[in-house]
Design a binder for these strands. Structure first.
Length: 543
RNA sequence: AGGCCCAUAGCCAAGCGGUAAGGCAACGGACUUUGACUCCGUCAUUUCGGUUGUUCGAAUCAACCUGGGCCUGCCA
Protein backbone atom coordinates (compact mmCIF):
# COMPACT_ATOMS: atom_id res chain seq x y z
CA UNK A 1 0.00 0.00 0.00
CA UNK A 2 1.42 3.32 -1.03
CA UNK A 3 1.52 6.14 1.43
CA UNK A 4 0.00 9.52 1.40
CA UNK A 5 2.19 12.30 0.08
CA UNK A 6 4.85 13.66 2.36
CA UNK A 7 3.98 17.17 1.43
CA UNK A 8 0.65 17.05 3.14
CA UNK A 9 1.78 14.82 5.96
CA UNK A 10 4.53 17.20 6.86
CA UNK A 11 2.22 20.19 6.90
CA UNK A 12 -0.15 18.19 8.99
CA UNK A 13 2.41 16.89 11.43
CA UNK A 14 3.77 20.38 12.07
CA UNK A 15 0.31 21.67 12.62
CA UNK A 16 -0.62 18.90 15.03
CA UNK A 17 2.60 19.48 16.90
CA UNK A 18 1.91 23.17 17.35
CA UNK A 19 -1.68 22.60 18.38
CA UNK A 20 -0.90 19.70 20.67
CA UNK A 21 -3.62 17.64 19.06
CA UNK A 22 -3.23 14.01 18.18
CA UNK A 23 -6.13 13.26 15.92
CA UNK A 24 -7.68 14.92 12.93
CA UNK A 25 -11.02 15.29 11.22
CA UNK A 26 -11.11 16.02 7.52
CA UNK A 27 -13.98 16.48 5.18
CA UNK A 28 -14.71 15.84 1.54
CA UNK A 29 -17.06 18.56 0.28
CA UNK A 30 -18.35 17.92 -3.25
CA UNK A 31 -20.92 20.18 -4.75
CA UNK A 32 -23.81 17.96 -5.83
CA UNK A 33 -23.85 19.05 -9.43
CA UNK A 34 -21.82 16.40 -11.25
CA UNK A 35 -20.38 12.95 -11.00
CA UNK A 36 -17.04 12.48 -9.33
CA UNK A 37 -14.19 12.02 -11.77
CA UNK A 38 -10.64 10.82 -11.47
CA UNK A 39 -9.52 14.37 -10.70
CA UNK A 40 -11.79 14.47 -7.66
CA UNK A 41 -10.28 11.21 -6.55
CA UNK A 42 -7.18 13.08 -5.45
CA UNK A 43 -9.06 15.12 -2.86
CA UNK A 44 -11.22 12.19 -1.95
CA UNK A 45 -8.42 9.72 -1.38
CA UNK A 46 -6.22 12.31 0.27
CA UNK A 47 -8.85 13.33 2.79
CA UNK A 48 -9.75 9.79 3.70
CA UNK A 49 -6.24 8.37 3.73
CA UNK A 50 -4.90 11.29 5.68
CA UNK A 51 -7.51 10.88 8.37
CA UNK A 52 -6.83 7.17 8.43
CA UNK A 53 -3.12 7.64 8.87
CA UNK A 54 -3.65 10.01 11.78
CA UNK A 55 -6.29 7.83 13.33
CA UNK A 56 -8.96 10.38 12.50
CA UNK A 57 -12.24 10.63 10.65
CA UNK A 58 -13.60 12.08 7.44
CA UNK A 59 -17.00 13.61 6.91
CA UNK A 60 -18.74 13.73 3.59
CA UNK A 61 -20.39 17.09 3.31
CA UNK A 62 -22.40 18.14 0.32
CA UNK A 63 -21.67 21.72 -0.41
CA UNK A 64 -25.16 22.81 -1.34
CA UNK A 65 -25.32 26.50 -0.64
CA UNK A 66 -26.29 27.50 -4.15
CA UNK A 67 -29.62 25.95 -5.10
CA UNK A 68 -29.47 27.39 -8.60
CA UNK A 69 -26.69 25.00 -9.53
CA UNK A 70 -27.36 21.91 -7.52
CA UNK A 71 -29.85 19.16 -7.27
CA UNK A 72 -30.29 15.95 -5.39
CA UNK A 73 -29.83 13.62 -8.31
CA UNK A 74 -26.07 13.56 -7.96
CA UNK A 75 -26.05 12.89 -4.25
CA UNK A 76 -26.59 9.15 -4.45
CA UNK A 77 -24.13 8.72 -7.27
CA UNK A 78 -21.48 10.54 -5.28
CA UNK A 79 -22.09 8.50 -2.16
CA UNK A 80 -22.01 5.36 -4.23
CA UNK A 81 -18.69 6.26 -5.84
CA UNK A 82 -17.12 7.05 -2.50
CA UNK A 83 -18.20 3.73 -1.07
CA UNK A 84 -17.06 1.93 -4.17
CA UNK A 85 -13.64 3.46 -3.73
CA UNK A 86 -13.62 1.81 -0.34
CA UNK A 87 -14.30 4.70 1.97
CA UNK A 88 -16.93 5.02 4.62
CA UNK A 89 -17.68 8.59 5.64
CA UNK A 90 -17.86 9.24 9.34
CA UNK A 91 -21.06 11.20 8.68
CA UNK A 92 -22.94 12.27 5.58
CA UNK A 93 -23.80 15.92 6.02
CA UNK A 94 -25.19 18.82 4.05
CA UNK A 95 -23.93 22.35 4.22
CA UNK A 96 -27.50 23.55 4.01
CA UNK A 97 -28.29 21.86 7.30
CA UNK A 98 -26.26 24.60 8.98
CA UNK A 99 -28.25 27.45 7.48
CA UNK A 100 -29.77 28.39 10.82
CA UNK A 101 -26.41 28.57 12.61
CA UNK A 102 -24.88 30.33 9.68
CA UNK A 103 -27.64 32.90 9.82
CA UNK A 104 -27.08 33.43 13.55
CA UNK A 105 -23.41 34.00 12.94
CA UNK A 106 -24.22 36.58 10.32
CA UNK A 107 -26.32 38.36 12.96
CA UNK A 108 -23.37 38.16 15.29
CA UNK A 109 -21.14 39.84 12.74
CA UNK A 110 -23.71 42.56 12.21
CA UNK A 111 -23.84 43.16 15.95
CA UNK A 112 -20.07 43.37 16.03
CA UNK A 113 -20.24 45.99 13.34
CA UNK A 114 -18.49 43.68 10.90
CA UNK A 115 -21.26 43.13 8.39
CA UNK A 116 -23.77 45.36 6.69
CA UNK A 117 -26.65 45.21 4.29
CA UNK A 118 -25.72 46.80 0.99
CA UNK A 119 -28.18 48.09 -1.60
CA UNK A 120 -25.70 48.50 -4.42
CA UNK A 121 -26.52 46.61 -7.58
CA UNK A 122 -24.33 43.81 -8.71
CA UNK A 123 -22.68 46.01 -11.24
CA UNK A 124 -22.16 48.82 -8.76
CA UNK A 125 -20.57 46.47 -6.28
CA UNK A 126 -18.23 45.37 -8.97
CA UNK A 127 -17.34 48.98 -9.84
CA UNK A 128 -16.88 49.97 -6.22
CA UNK A 129 -14.61 47.02 -5.69
CA UNK A 130 -11.85 48.65 -7.69
CA UNK A 131 -9.38 46.71 -9.78
CA UNK A 132 -6.23 44.71 -9.31
CA UNK A 133 -4.24 47.92 -9.37
CA UNK A 134 -6.59 50.40 -7.77
CA UNK A 135 -8.21 50.23 -4.36
CA UNK A 136 -11.95 50.01 -4.03
CA UNK A 137 -14.17 52.60 -2.43
CA UNK A 138 -16.65 52.33 0.39
CA UNK A 139 -20.24 51.50 -0.32
CA UNK A 140 -22.56 54.36 0.70
CA UNK A 141 -24.40 51.78 2.82
CA UNK A 142 -21.30 50.72 4.71
CA UNK A 143 -22.06 52.79 7.75
CA UNK A 144 -25.61 51.80 8.40
CA UNK A 145 -26.30 51.36 12.08
CA UNK A 146 -26.30 47.96 13.67
CA UNK A 147 -30.03 48.28 14.30
CA UNK A 148 -30.81 49.18 10.74
CA UNK A 149 -28.67 46.30 9.45
CA UNK A 150 -30.35 43.91 11.82
CA UNK A 151 -33.76 45.04 10.66
CA UNK A 152 -32.89 44.88 6.97
CA UNK A 153 -31.19 41.52 7.23
CA UNK A 154 -34.21 40.10 9.02
CA UNK A 155 -36.41 41.48 6.28
CA UNK A 156 -34.14 39.93 3.68
CA UNK A 157 -34.73 36.58 5.30
CA UNK A 158 -38.46 37.25 5.42
CA UNK A 159 -38.50 37.75 1.70
CA UNK A 160 -39.35 41.42 1.68
CA UNK A 161 -36.85 42.19 -1.04
CA UNK A 162 -36.33 40.95 -4.53
CA UNK A 163 -33.34 39.06 -5.81
CA UNK A 164 -30.43 41.37 -6.34
CA UNK A 165 -31.93 44.18 -4.32
CA UNK A 166 -29.81 43.70 -1.25
CA UNK A 167 -26.91 41.60 -0.05
CA UNK A 168 -25.13 41.17 3.24
CA UNK A 169 -21.50 42.10 3.08
CA UNK A 170 -18.59 41.75 5.46
CA UNK A 171 -16.95 45.00 6.48
CA UNK A 172 -13.27 44.33 6.03
CA UNK A 173 -10.98 46.42 3.87
CA UNK A 174 -11.88 48.00 0.55
CA UNK A 175 -8.25 48.81 -0.16
CA UNK A 176 -6.86 45.37 0.49
CA UNK A 177 -4.59 44.12 -2.29
CA UNK A 178 -6.44 40.84 -1.86
CA UNK A 179 -9.71 41.49 -3.58
CA UNK A 180 -11.43 38.78 -1.61
CA UNK A 181 -11.12 41.01 1.43
CA UNK A 182 -12.84 44.00 -0.18
CA UNK A 183 -16.12 43.65 1.68
CA UNK A 184 -17.07 40.28 0.21
CA UNK A 185 -20.72 39.39 -0.17
CA UNK A 186 -21.79 36.85 2.44
CA UNK A 187 -25.51 36.48 1.70
CA UNK A 188 -27.54 36.91 -1.44
CA UNK A 189 -31.25 36.65 -2.11
CA UNK A 190 -32.38 33.74 -4.28
CA UNK A 191 -36.03 32.88 -4.48
CA UNK A 192 -35.41 29.36 -5.63
CA UNK A 193 -36.47 26.00 -4.28
CA UNK A 194 -33.63 24.28 -2.47
CA UNK A 195 -33.35 20.52 -2.96
CA UNK A 196 -33.14 19.96 0.76
CA UNK A 197 -34.43 23.06 2.48
CA UNK A 198 -37.44 23.48 0.24
CA UNK A 199 -38.70 27.05 0.34
CA UNK A 200 -37.64 27.72 3.89
CA UNK A 201 -34.92 30.13 2.80
CA UNK A 202 -34.67 32.88 0.28
CA UNK A 203 -31.25 34.05 1.36
CA UNK A 204 -28.26 31.82 0.87
CA UNK A 205 -24.74 32.16 2.23
CA UNK A 206 -21.80 32.36 -0.13
CA UNK A 207 -19.10 29.71 -0.09
CA UNK A 208 -16.62 32.05 1.56
CA UNK A 209 -18.88 32.56 4.54
CA UNK A 210 -20.48 29.16 4.78
CA UNK A 211 -17.52 26.90 4.28
CA UNK A 212 -15.34 27.98 7.20
CA UNK A 213 -18.37 27.93 9.46
CA UNK A 214 -19.33 24.45 8.39
CA UNK A 215 -15.78 23.25 8.93
CA UNK A 216 -15.63 24.83 12.35
CA UNK A 217 -19.00 23.49 13.47
CA UNK A 218 -18.05 19.97 12.48
CA UNK A 219 -14.77 20.18 14.29
CA UNK A 220 -12.80 19.77 11.11
CA UNK A 221 -9.13 20.18 11.94
CA UNK A 222 -7.81 20.36 8.39
CA UNK A 223 -9.72 21.68 5.46
CA UNK A 224 -8.04 20.59 2.27
CA UNK A 225 -8.85 22.37 -0.93
CA UNK A 226 -7.35 23.20 -4.27
CA UNK A 227 -4.86 25.89 -5.08
CA UNK A 228 -7.32 28.47 -6.29
CA UNK A 229 -8.58 28.93 -2.74
CA UNK A 230 -5.19 30.09 -1.62
CA UNK A 231 -6.30 33.70 -2.03
CA UNK A 232 -9.32 32.96 0.09
CA UNK A 233 -7.44 31.71 3.12
CA UNK A 234 -7.22 35.13 4.79
CA UNK A 235 -10.97 35.43 4.46
CA UNK A 236 -11.47 31.90 5.70
CA UNK A 237 -9.42 32.71 8.76
CA UNK A 238 -11.24 36.02 9.20
CA UNK A 239 -14.61 34.30 9.29
CA UNK A 240 -13.48 31.69 11.80
CA UNK A 241 -11.92 34.37 14.00
CA UNK A 242 -14.68 36.96 13.87
CA UNK A 243 -17.42 34.41 14.33
CA UNK A 244 -15.46 33.34 17.38
CA UNK A 245 -15.67 29.70 16.51
CA UNK A 246 -14.35 27.39 19.19
CA UNK A 247 -12.74 25.05 16.71
CA UNK A 248 -10.17 26.62 14.42
CA UNK A 249 -9.73 24.59 11.26
CA UNK A 250 -6.64 24.96 9.13
CA UNK A 251 -7.10 25.36 5.39
CA UNK A 252 -4.44 23.62 3.31
CA UNK A 253 -4.29 23.98 -0.45
CA UNK A 254 -2.81 21.59 -2.97
CA UNK A 255 -2.74 21.23 -6.72
CA UNK A 256 -5.35 19.58 -8.86
CA UNK A 257 -4.79 16.35 -10.68
CA UNK A 258 -5.09 16.12 -14.42
CA UNK A 259 -4.37 13.21 -16.68
CA UNK A 260 -3.07 13.82 -20.12
CA UNK A 261 -5.39 13.22 -23.03
CA UNK A 262 -8.28 13.24 -20.63
CA UNK A 263 -10.90 15.85 -20.48
CA UNK A 264 -11.81 16.65 -16.95
CA UNK A 265 -13.79 19.84 -17.05
CA UNK A 266 -17.26 19.56 -15.58
CA UNK A 267 -18.59 21.69 -18.36
CA UNK A 268 -17.36 19.48 -21.16
CA UNK A 269 -18.36 16.30 -19.41
CA UNK A 270 -21.82 17.72 -19.03
CA UNK A 271 -21.91 18.58 -22.72
CA UNK A 272 -21.01 15.02 -23.60
CA UNK A 273 -23.83 13.67 -21.52
CA UNK A 274 -26.45 16.22 -22.40
CA UNK A 275 -25.57 16.12 -26.06
CA UNK A 276 -25.98 12.35 -26.01
CA UNK A 277 -22.49 11.91 -27.32
CA UNK A 278 -21.97 9.37 -24.58
CA UNK A 279 -24.57 7.29 -22.84
CA UNK A 280 -24.36 8.96 -19.48
CA UNK A 281 -21.90 9.89 -16.80
CA UNK A 282 -21.02 6.24 -16.37
CA UNK A 283 -20.24 5.65 -20.01
CA UNK A 284 -16.92 3.81 -20.16
CA UNK A 285 -15.45 6.58 -22.22
CA UNK A 286 -15.91 9.03 -19.39
CA UNK A 287 -13.17 9.77 -16.87
CA UNK A 288 -15.72 9.65 -14.08
CA UNK A 289 -15.26 7.10 -11.35
CA UNK A 290 -18.43 5.46 -12.58
CA UNK A 291 -17.07 5.33 -16.12
CA UNK A 292 -13.72 3.97 -15.04
CA UNK A 293 -15.48 1.36 -12.98
CA UNK A 294 -17.38 0.16 -16.04
CA UNK A 295 -14.21 0.19 -18.01
CA UNK A 296 -12.89 -2.33 -15.55
CA UNK A 297 -10.79 -0.23 -13.23
CA UNK A 298 -10.65 -1.47 -9.69
CA UNK A 299 -11.10 0.73 -6.67
CA UNK A 300 -7.78 -0.32 -5.30
CA UNK A 301 -5.95 0.56 -8.50
CA UNK A 302 -7.37 4.06 -8.35
CA UNK A 303 -6.44 4.49 -4.72
CA UNK A 304 -2.91 3.29 -5.36
CA UNK A 305 -2.61 5.54 -8.35
CA UNK A 306 -3.61 8.58 -6.36
CA UNK A 307 -1.26 7.78 -3.53
CA UNK A 308 1.64 6.96 -5.79
CA UNK A 309 1.17 10.05 -7.81
CA UNK A 310 1.60 12.28 -4.79
CA UNK A 311 0.63 15.88 -4.54
CA UNK A 312 2.17 19.26 -4.02
CA UNK A 313 1.36 22.91 -4.51
CA UNK A 314 1.47 22.48 -8.25
CA UNK A 315 -1.34 21.39 -10.52
CA UNK A 316 -0.06 18.24 -12.10
CA UNK A 317 -0.78 16.43 -15.30
CA UNK A 318 0.10 12.81 -14.92
CA UNK A 319 0.63 10.42 -17.82
CA UNK A 320 -2.31 8.12 -18.32
CA UNK A 321 0.27 5.31 -18.49
CA UNK A 322 0.61 5.72 -14.79
CA UNK A 323 -3.07 5.05 -14.17
CA UNK A 324 -2.97 1.98 -16.38
CA UNK A 325 0.15 0.76 -14.68
CA UNK A 326 -1.62 0.58 -11.34
CA UNK A 327 -4.55 -1.23 -12.88
CA UNK A 328 -2.24 -3.84 -14.38
CA UNK A 329 -0.46 -4.10 -11.12
CA UNK A 330 -3.72 -4.84 -9.39
CA UNK A 331 -5.11 -7.23 -11.98
CA UNK A 332 -2.08 -9.20 -12.89
CA UNK A 333 -2.38 -11.62 -10.03
CA UNK A 334 -6.10 -11.69 -9.64
CA UNK A 335 -7.60 -12.14 -13.07
CA UNK A 336 -8.05 -14.87 -15.56
CA UNK A 337 -6.48 -14.27 -18.91
CA UNK A 338 -8.61 -15.37 -21.74
CA UNK A 339 -7.96 -15.15 -25.43
CA UNK A 340 -9.74 -13.10 -28.00
CA UNK A 341 -9.13 -11.95 -31.52
CA UNK A 342 -10.29 -8.49 -32.43
CA UNK A 343 -9.42 -8.41 -36.09
CA UNK A 344 -9.53 -12.03 -37.20
CA UNK A 345 -7.71 -13.78 -39.97
CA UNK A 346 -8.33 -17.46 -40.63
CA UNK A 347 -5.59 -19.93 -39.86
CA UNK A 348 -5.83 -23.55 -40.99
CA UNK A 349 -3.69 -26.34 -39.58
CA UNK A 350 -3.38 -28.52 -42.64
CA UNK A 351 -2.00 -31.57 -40.85
CA UNK A 352 -4.65 -31.55 -38.12
CA UNK A 353 -7.53 -33.98 -38.40
CA UNK A 354 -10.57 -32.46 -40.06
CA UNK A 355 -13.66 -32.16 -37.86
CA UNK A 356 -11.82 -32.91 -34.64
CA UNK A 357 -11.96 -30.55 -31.69
CA UNK A 358 -9.74 -31.19 -28.73
CA UNK A 359 -9.78 -29.36 -25.45
CA UNK A 360 -6.48 -28.27 -24.05
CA UNK A 361 -5.53 -27.27 -20.58
CA UNK A 362 -4.93 -23.59 -20.22
CA UNK A 363 -3.60 -21.90 -17.14
CA UNK A 364 -5.84 -19.04 -16.14
CA UNK A 365 -2.96 -17.01 -14.87
CA UNK A 366 0.68 -18.07 -14.87
CA UNK A 367 1.42 -16.07 -11.80
CA UNK A 368 -1.39 -17.24 -9.64
CA UNK A 369 -1.93 -20.98 -9.50
CA UNK A 370 -4.98 -20.60 -7.34
CA UNK A 371 -6.94 -19.44 -10.33
CA UNK A 372 -6.58 -22.93 -11.75
CA UNK A 373 -6.99 -24.14 -15.30
CA UNK A 374 -9.66 -24.09 -17.91
CA UNK A 375 -10.23 -26.03 -21.10
CA UNK A 376 -9.85 -24.28 -24.41
CA UNK A 377 -10.90 -25.57 -27.77
CA UNK A 378 -8.40 -26.35 -30.50
CA UNK A 379 -8.98 -27.64 -34.01
CA UNK A 380 -7.91 -27.39 -37.62
CA UNK A 381 -9.67 -24.05 -38.02
CA UNK A 382 -8.55 -21.13 -35.94
CA UNK A 383 -8.54 -17.37 -35.96
CA UNK A 384 -5.53 -15.29 -35.14
CA UNK A 385 -5.06 -11.57 -34.96
CA UNK A 386 -4.47 -10.08 -38.38
CA UNK A 387 -1.40 -8.21 -37.31
CA UNK A 388 0.13 -11.27 -35.72
CA UNK A 389 0.98 -12.44 -39.22
CA UNK A 390 3.17 -10.96 -41.88
CA UNK A 391 4.62 -12.49 -45.00
CA UNK A 392 8.21 -11.88 -44.14
CA UNK A 393 9.90 -11.32 -40.83
CA UNK A 394 10.74 -7.65 -40.88
CA UNK A 395 13.43 -7.53 -38.20
CA UNK A 396 14.90 -9.49 -35.36
CA UNK A 397 12.50 -8.03 -32.86
CA UNK A 398 9.47 -9.38 -34.67
CA UNK A 399 8.17 -12.21 -32.54
CA UNK A 400 5.03 -13.25 -34.33
CA UNK A 401 4.14 -15.40 -37.28
CA UNK A 402 5.59 -15.09 -40.79
CA UNK A 403 5.91 -17.44 -43.69
CA UNK A 404 8.40 -20.16 -42.89
CA UNK A 405 8.53 -19.29 -39.24
CA UNK A 406 7.40 -21.30 -36.27
CA UNK A 407 5.55 -19.75 -33.35
CA UNK A 408 3.73 -21.13 -30.36
CA UNK A 409 -0.02 -20.80 -30.16
CA UNK A 410 -0.57 -19.76 -26.59
CA UNK A 411 -1.51 -22.77 -24.44
CA UNK A 412 -1.23 -25.03 -27.52
CA UNK A 413 1.24 -26.15 -30.15
CA UNK A 414 4.01 -24.80 -32.32
CA UNK A 415 2.79 -24.00 -35.78
CA UNK A 416 4.68 -23.16 -38.92
CA UNK A 417 3.24 -20.95 -41.63
CA UNK A 418 3.63 -22.43 -45.09
CA UNK A 419 1.25 -20.78 -47.46
CA UNK A 420 -1.17 -17.91 -47.83
CA UNK A 421 -4.49 -17.58 -49.65
CA UNK A 422 -5.71 -14.33 -51.11
CA UNK A 423 -9.00 -12.93 -52.29
CA UNK A 424 -9.47 -11.17 -55.64
CA UNK A 425 -8.33 -7.86 -54.24
CA UNK A 426 -5.14 -9.33 -52.96
CA UNK A 427 -6.04 -9.34 -49.28
CA UNK A 428 -4.85 -12.22 -47.19
CA UNK A 429 -7.79 -14.45 -46.28
CA UNK A 430 -6.15 -17.51 -44.89
CA UNK A 431 -2.84 -18.70 -43.55
CA UNK A 432 -2.04 -22.37 -43.97
CA UNK A 433 0.11 -23.92 -41.29
CA UNK A 434 1.32 -27.23 -39.98
CA UNK A 435 1.58 -28.02 -36.29
CA UNK A 436 3.89 -30.23 -34.33
CA UNK A 437 2.00 -32.44 -31.85
CA UNK A 438 5.08 -32.89 -29.69
CA UNK A 439 5.17 -29.27 -28.77
CA UNK A 440 2.03 -29.05 -26.68
CA UNK A 441 2.26 -26.45 -23.95
CA UNK A 442 2.94 -27.78 -20.52
CA UNK A 443 4.79 -30.86 -21.71
CA UNK A 444 8.15 -29.27 -21.25
CA UNK A 445 9.14 -29.51 -24.88
CA UNK A 446 12.27 -27.49 -25.35
CA UNK A 447 14.12 -28.80 -28.35
CA UNK A 448 13.32 -25.75 -30.43
CA UNK A 449 12.50 -22.16 -29.62
CA UNK A 450 9.58 -20.60 -31.42
CA UNK A 451 9.65 -17.14 -32.88
CA UNK A 452 7.25 -15.92 -30.22
CA UNK A 453 3.84 -16.85 -28.91
CA UNK A 454 0.57 -15.62 -30.30
CA UNK A 455 -3.03 -15.84 -29.18
CA UNK A 456 -5.77 -17.63 -31.11
CA UNK A 457 -9.36 -18.68 -30.92
CA UNK A 458 -10.94 -21.90 -32.20
CA UNK A 459 -13.18 -20.98 -35.12
CA UNK A 460 -16.14 -23.33 -34.63
CA UNK A 461 -16.67 -22.70 -30.96
CA UNK A 462 -15.64 -19.09 -30.55
CA UNK A 463 -18.19 -16.52 -29.51
CA UNK A 464 -18.66 -13.54 -31.72
CA UNK A 465 -17.84 -10.34 -29.96
CA UNK A 466 -17.92 -6.68 -30.69
CA UNK A 467 -14.88 -4.84 -29.48
CA UNK A 468 -14.18 -1.24 -29.10
CA UNK A 469 -10.78 0.16 -29.31
CA UNK A 470 -10.69 2.82 -26.75
CA UNK A 471 -8.80 6.03 -27.08
CA UNK A 472 -9.06 8.40 -24.23
CA UNK A 473 -11.16 11.48 -24.50
CA UNK A 474 -9.26 14.15 -26.23
CA UNK A 475 -6.96 16.57 -24.65
CA UNK A 476 -8.44 19.60 -23.01
CA UNK A 477 -6.09 21.81 -25.00
CA UNK A 478 -8.10 21.14 -28.11
CA UNK A 479 -10.17 23.90 -29.45
CA UNK A 480 -13.62 24.01 -28.04
CA UNK A 481 -15.31 24.08 -31.40
CA UNK A 482 -13.92 20.77 -32.48
CA UNK A 483 -14.46 19.20 -29.14
CA UNK A 484 -17.63 17.20 -29.58
CA UNK A 485 -16.85 16.43 -33.15
CA UNK A 486 -13.53 14.88 -32.33
CA UNK A 487 -14.88 12.75 -29.56
CA UNK A 488 -17.53 11.38 -31.74
CA UNK A 489 -15.24 10.43 -34.53
CA UNK A 490 -11.99 9.38 -33.08
CA UNK A 491 -12.49 8.09 -29.65
CA UNK A 492 -14.37 4.97 -30.40
CA UNK A 493 -13.50 2.40 -33.00
CA UNK A 494 -15.54 -0.74 -33.20
CA UNK A 495 -14.43 -4.03 -34.58
CA UNK A 496 -15.94 -7.47 -34.80
CA UNK A 497 -13.96 -10.38 -33.49
CA UNK A 498 -14.13 -13.48 -31.38
CA UNK A 499 -13.67 -14.52 -27.80
CA UNK A 500 -12.88 -18.06 -26.74
CA UNK A 501 -15.94 -19.90 -25.57
CA UNK A 502 -14.89 -20.42 -22.01
CA UNK A 503 -16.79 -20.83 -18.83
CA UNK A 504 -15.76 -17.51 -17.48
CA UNK A 505 -18.33 -15.52 -15.67
CA UNK A 506 -19.26 -12.60 -17.90
CA UNK A 507 -19.32 -10.24 -14.97
CA UNK A 508 -15.92 -11.17 -13.71
CA UNK A 509 -12.88 -9.25 -14.77
CA UNK A 510 -10.28 -10.81 -16.92
CA UNK A 511 -7.25 -9.72 -18.74
CA UNK A 512 -7.20 -9.96 -22.38
CA UNK A 513 -4.04 -10.22 -24.33
CA UNK A 514 -4.37 -7.12 -26.42
CA UNK A 515 -3.99 -3.74 -24.93
CA UNK A 516 -6.52 -1.00 -25.29
CA UNK A 517 -9.53 -3.06 -26.25
CA UNK A 518 -12.69 -3.58 -24.35
CA UNK A 519 -15.24 -6.25 -24.94
CA UNK A 520 -18.71 -5.12 -25.63
CA UNK A 521 -21.38 -7.40 -24.40
CA UNK A 522 -24.17 -7.27 -26.94
CA UNK A 523 -26.35 -9.67 -25.04
CA UNK A 524 -26.85 -7.39 -22.15
CA UNK A 525 -30.41 -6.37 -21.51
CA UNK A 526 -29.45 -2.98 -20.16
CA UNK A 527 -27.85 -1.53 -23.23
CA UNK A 528 -25.46 -2.81 -25.76
CA UNK A 529 -22.46 -1.09 -24.36
CA UNK A 530 -21.80 -3.02 -21.22
CA UNK A 531 -18.13 -3.24 -20.66
CA UNK A 532 -17.51 -6.03 -18.31
CA UNK A 533 -13.90 -6.69 -19.00
CA UNK A 534 -10.76 -4.84 -18.65
CA UNK A 535 -8.09 -5.27 -21.16
CA UNK A 536 -5.05 -4.37 -19.38
CA UNK A 537 -1.93 -6.08 -20.44
CA UNK A 538 0.72 -3.88 -21.74
CA UNK A 539 0.88 -3.53 -25.45
CA UNK A 540 1.93 -6.73 -27.07
CA UNK A 541 2.51 -5.09 -30.38
CA UNK A 542 5.63 -3.21 -31.17
CA UNK A 543 5.97 -1.87 -34.62
C1' A B 1 0.62 45.73 -14.07
C1' G B 2 -1.34 45.41 -7.22
C1' G B 3 -1.29 40.99 -4.18
C1' C B 4 -0.50 35.86 -3.37
C1' C B 5 1.39 31.08 -4.99
C1' C B 6 4.76 27.91 -7.78
C1' A B 7 9.52 26.17 -10.48
C1' U B 8 13.91 19.18 -9.08
C1' A B 9 14.58 14.45 -15.67
C1' G B 10 9.63 13.26 -21.05
C1' C B 11 5.49 12.86 -16.69
C1' C B 12 4.58 12.69 -11.27
C1' A B 13 7.54 13.37 -6.88
C1' A B 14 11.07 12.99 -2.30
C1' G B 15 14.51 16.27 -0.33
C1' C B 16 13.80 21.64 4.17
C1' G B 17 22.17 23.78 5.07
C1' G B 18 26.27 18.30 4.65
C1' U B 19 27.09 16.85 -1.28
C1' A B 20 20.16 14.75 -5.94
C1' A B 21 15.01 8.92 -2.95
C1' G B 22 11.19 6.48 -5.48
C1' G B 23 7.36 5.60 -9.29
C1' C B 24 5.64 6.01 -14.55
C1' A B 25 7.66 6.23 -19.42
C1' A B 26 12.03 4.96 -22.28
C1' C B 27 16.31 1.95 -23.49
C1' G B 28 19.72 -2.54 -23.14
C1' G B 29 19.89 -7.83 -21.52
C1' A B 30 18.21 -12.64 -19.15
C1' C B 31 13.94 -15.68 -18.58
C1' U B 32 9.19 -17.17 -20.51
C1' U B 33 2.86 -21.36 -22.10
C1' U B 34 1.73 -13.24 -24.61
C1' G B 35 6.85 -9.03 -26.86
C1' A B 36 3.14 -9.54 -20.56
C1' C B 37 5.04 -10.79 -15.71
C1' U B 38 9.70 -11.41 -13.12
C1' C B 39 14.92 -10.47 -12.75
C1' C B 40 19.51 -7.66 -13.94
C1' G B 41 21.40 -3.08 -16.07
C1' U B 42 21.06 2.24 -18.08
C1' C B 43 18.49 6.91 -17.53
C1' A B 44 19.72 14.95 -13.49
C1' U B 45 27.77 16.03 -11.49
C1' U B 46 29.24 22.43 -17.06
C1' U B 47 22.72 18.73 -11.47
C1' C B 48 17.71 21.18 -8.99
C1' G B 49 14.33 27.86 -14.09
C1' G B 50 18.56 31.89 -14.24
C1' U B 51 22.07 35.29 -11.86
C1' U B 52 24.33 37.18 -7.74
C1' G B 53 25.15 36.80 -2.63
C1' U B 54 25.49 34.48 2.69
C1' U B 55 28.29 30.00 4.24
C1' C B 56 33.79 25.68 5.33
C1' G B 57 29.58 23.74 2.57
C1' A B 58 23.39 25.79 -1.06
C1' A B 59 18.22 22.18 -4.61
C1' U B 60 17.63 23.87 0.48
C1' C B 61 18.78 30.66 3.18
C1' A B 62 18.62 35.98 0.87
C1' A B 63 18.15 39.42 -3.26
C1' C B 64 17.09 40.23 -8.11
C1' C B 65 15.58 38.27 -12.82
C1' U B 66 12.83 34.81 -15.97
C1' G B 67 8.78 31.62 -16.74
C1' G B 68 3.96 29.66 -15.11
C1' G B 69 -0.63 29.82 -12.05
C1' C B 70 -4.59 32.30 -9.18
C1' C B 71 -7.49 36.74 -7.87
C1' U B 72 -11.61 42.44 -10.12
C1' G B 73 -19.18 36.30 -9.42
C1' C B 74 -24.82 38.27 -5.62
C1' C B 75 -20.12 30.55 -8.54
C1' A B 76 -17.75 26.85 -5.77
Amino acid sequence: MAEISNFIKTVMANDLESKKVNTIITRFPPEPNAYLHIGHARALVTNFELAKSFNGKTNLRFDDTNPSKEDASFVDAIINDIKWLGYEPNQVLYGSDYFEETYELAIKLIKKGLAYVCDLSQQEISEYRGTLNTPGKHSPYRNRSVDENLKLFTEMREGKFNEGEKVLRAKIDMSSPNINMRDPVFYRIMKIHHHRQGDKWCIFPMYDFAHPIQDAIEGITHSLCSLEYDNHRPLYDWVVRECEMKNVPQQIEFGRLNINNTIMSKRYLRQLVEGNIVKGYDDPRMPTLAGLRRRGFTASSIREFILATGLSRVNSTVDSDMLEHFLREDLKLSTNRIMAVTDPIKLVITNYEEGKIEYLDAVNNNENEELGNRKIAFSRDLYIERDDFVLEKPNKHYKRLALGLEVRLYHAYFIKANEVKYDESGNITEVLCTYDPQTLSGTGFNERKPNGTIGFVEANTAKKALFNKFSPLLDSDDAEVHFLDRINKDSWEECHGFVENGEYNPYERFQFIRDGYYVVDQDSKKDNLVFNRIVSLKSSIKK
